[in-house]
Write a protein that binds this DNA or RNA. Structure first.
Lengths: 175, 175
DNA sequence: GAGATATGTCAACAAGGCTGACATAAAATT
DNA sequence: AATTTTATGTCAGCCTTGTTGACATATCTC
């Protein structure tokens, strides 16, 4: 939220440039983002294949493993897919004993999702694989780059969702 | 595959710490990347819908518009899909007059792809939309953040592809 | 002229999205 | 207590976008 003094002409010119900048497509970042994400998600694919799972299974398993007791509704909100789409992959993960679904205690309509030991193992294995790529890339950067990148990625997220994601990622405590 | 000297205790401890760093999943970056990409690609969807196009059409149109005269083979290499998948969407883009395919001059087997004026307009409209999000996020960051983020995204890409992507994104001149 | 290369095309299939309709159990409201 | 709302499950069918395998054609290279 840094603000910039307005009065100084040199700065005014900068804000004119800024409008041009907004209208000039940032092809570099658009394309780098595309290629980086392409390779980032490709790592787990080979392993998932061995289990007969796809990327959809990965996403479900990841978030359940990260947040034991997650409900269906919360998961739908995270993934932004329909319950029918979710149910297809979730059913398979439960059948193959990677996730289990317990009845809610406070609200017995809810299903509280938990990864089984087998599920946690796989989730961890995949997370480590992606972490390796992330840390390798980070190794070539300044020490403060990680913070900058986290903040940047967070700002890319829809502003209505940002607080929610922040709680999800960093925990509900830290503001 | 790092091997570690076994004899020296001091090294053992240090490499233990390092392994823990490598082995501790970077959940924050993994998840932020997921959410950021989710929202980043969602912007164009509404507009594409109006034209009866999907994300696959967007990717093709984007790269053709950016690199007039792109060949089928180069496009396949960028997108990493099969020629059958490409052809399905490319055919529609040509039929609806967003892309045109000219016979190669040096090699008449090749098809040199060009966006039509209509195609360029749409590609630009979508790129601007994504740029808006990118620049909004960048506005909250340090001035040197953009460079750091570009470099980071580049390092996330498979190392065999990195030079190729670099040429594609920044132009073949700049090394 | 023979073989390699760039592209196109047909057919079938799989993953993972979607919509719409309907069912059930439990909670919340009146 | 009866009614409505909520959380979830499920059936059926459709769309987009990826895959494989086989085969066709034109053109370039040797």
């Amino acid at each position: 939220m840094r603000t910039v003094p307005d009065a100084i002409p040199a700065f005014k010119r900068q804000s004119l440039d800024k409008d041009i900048l907004i209208e000039t497509p940032a092809y570099d970042l658009i394309e780098l983002f595309f290629f980086a994400y392409r390779d980032f998600v490709s790592d787990p694919d080979r392993i998932l294949d061995e289990y007969g799972f796809g990327r959809a299974h990965h996403r479900v398993l990841h978030f359940v493993s990260r947040q034991p007791g997650l409900t269906i509704a919360e998961l739908l909100d995270i993934l932004r897919i329909t319950k029918q789409s979710l149910n297809r992959v979730l059913k398979e993960l439960i059948e193959k004993d990677f996730i289990e679904s317990r009845m809610g205690t406070a609200d017995r309509r809810q299903r509280l999702l938990h990864a089984t030991p087998q599920g946690r193992d796989l989730a961890l294995k995949l997370a480590k694989l992606q972490t390796r790529r992330i840390m390798r890339a980070l190794a070539d950067a300044e020490p403060e780059a990680k913070e900058a990148i986290s903040r940047y990625l967070l700002c890319l997220i829809d502003s209505d969702d940002r607080t929610h994601v922040q709680q999800l990622v960093f925990g509900p405590d830290k503001t």
